[in-house]
Design a protein around this nucleic acid. Structure first.
Lengths: 187, 187
DNA sequence: AAGAAGAATTGACCACTGGTTAATTAAATG
DNA sequence: CATTTAATTAACCAGTGGTCAATTCTTCTT
């Protein structure tokens, strides 16, 4: 037993790529190390040469999703306060419901390390969410309220996750929810 | 092989009782059929004589928690509109965070049957939540807004779940969140 | 070119999970 | 007492994440 012939070297990138592919259709617990390995034509043991464990692998997978989310927030900065804020709300829910498995791992699971949202990446995204909205409103909002808003959007995603396939199936409800929160935020 | 001697008959009640006990400290995925069985001094196979599967067993376990939740809602009916509504918000978050494993199974997991919240019991509790608040406000509220409120409380529970041990550790945030939602609800 | 050193892969294994079932034993019934 | 019936067991299945000694392939050195 030894090296691979077909795909020659099994790089970290290839593994992440395949894990990402399967993650699009199945959630964390349903994507197994063995299924990733067999798709790559190797055994699951070899993945452990490149990654310490399953969590580390999937942390690598979701990196780009955090980038996407942060990017989205930045893109809303050149808008009017109200419009920009609503845009962020909508986009957040859209992101969460169009990347359900990933969202879950990013903000809920992460169960290797006690508190998902205290991890660097989730924390950073949360901070960016708050800072961006605060900036749109020239620091006139109460941070607690922005935090409550985040929690409420988080709730929307987790409420509809599993019930619907894609964001569009909850578009109307999302719009109503966004208006509801916007009203509470800007009084 | 055969009957039990120690606890004589292994009734459904005894199994539910033990599952409930372990459910207080560990979540659904960490409570195994084997651990329940061994605590009862039998093998896990025998549990399957009384319950079709793990989900059915835990459905029996959470029955009383749905009753608790519904009871709580009814107890808030003889209060003033604003006070009663806030009371419900607080109590809901308190329930969720003081029964984290159970809450998760009641409203998130239930993964055998696609949509947890469309299951009879969760659905009934959600309806009671909406109806109770509507009644406190003499049907003057928009149902969509009450629904958004529920989602936001749901979000609060799931956000703090795992981060804190008990509700009291998030008491201040819960109060702020309740005020935030109350404002949005009654304009 | 030969051989040693190192990197990468394998397969067999571990402990665990939910779930099934033939065989067995206990209790209830005639 | 015998027979039926209810309950329990142990052995098994397929699956999971994870580990590791043995092996093979690559590369570097002499």
């Amino acid at each position: 037993m030894g090296r691979k012939q077909i795909k020659d070297t099994l790089s970290k990138e290839l593994i992440v790529e395949e894990a990402d592919r399967q993650f699009l259709e199945l959630d964390f617990n349903k994507v197994s190390m063995r299924s990733i390995a067999s798709a790559l034509g190797c055994t699951h043991g070899s993945i452990y040469y490149h990654f310490q464990n399953k969590e580390e692998l999937f942390n690598a997978v979701i990196e780009k999703y955090f980038t996407m989310l942060n990017q989205m927030l930045e893109n809303s900065l050149n808008l009017d306060a109200i419009e920009g804020t609503k845009q962020i709300f909508i986009n957040y829910m859209q992101f969460g419901l169009n990347n359900q498995s990933q969202y879950d791992f990013m903000f809920v699971q992460h169960h290797g390390l006690e508190d998902p949202l205290q991890q660097p990446a989730p924390r950073k995204s949360l901070k960016k969410f708050i800072d961006t909205i605060q900036e749109l409103h020239q620091n006139r909002l109460k941070e607690d309220n922005i935090h409550s808003t985040f929690i409420s959007l988080h709730g929307f995603v987790l409420y509809y996750k599993g019930r619907i396939e894609r964001y569009d199936d909850a578009k109307i409800a999302a719009n109503a929810h966004a208006d509801f929160l916007l009203k509470a935020l800007v009084i």
